[in-house]
């Protein structure tokens, strides 16, 4: 954790994020889901994006959050067509249907 923001800068940012139209990093976290879903009202979206411009940690956090999500989606989708269906499974389904 040596390359984190210096303590003084963190204190300044902490105070700055208390100003009107500003949110803390904790509040930023609460908006992420709706922001990515595109359902954040325009005023909140403006405030969210303002915080993102000022806060490198949240900017990088959101980027990593998005990347991990894309990774989960893309790996799940790529495995789908490669799954061969075992013939004995088909036989079992049909046998159960015949009773």
């Amino acid at each position: 954790m040596s390359a984190q923001r210096p303590r003084l800068l963190r204190r300044i940012q902490g105070l700055m994020f208390k100003l009107p139209l500003m949110i803390s990093c904790e509040d930023f976290e609460d908006f992420i889901l709706d922001y990515l879903d595109g359902t954040l009202p325009s005023r909140q979206k403006f405030i969210f994006e303002m915080h993102m411009k000022l806060c490198r940690e949240c900017r990088e956090y959101l980027e990593a959050y998005r990347t991990s999500l894309e990774l989960a989606k893309s790996t799940a989708q790529e495995e789908a067509p490669k799954q061969p269906v075992p013939e004995d499974l088909i036989a079992a389904v049909l046998a159960a249907r015949k009773g």
Binding site: A3, Q4, S24, C25, E57, C58, E60, Y61
Partner: peptide
């Protein structure tokens, strides 16, 4: 987060 509500995130 730290006590100022700032995120603690290892730089990328």
């Amino acid at each position: 987060y730290d006590k100022n509500g700032c995120r603690i995130e290892e730089p990328w």
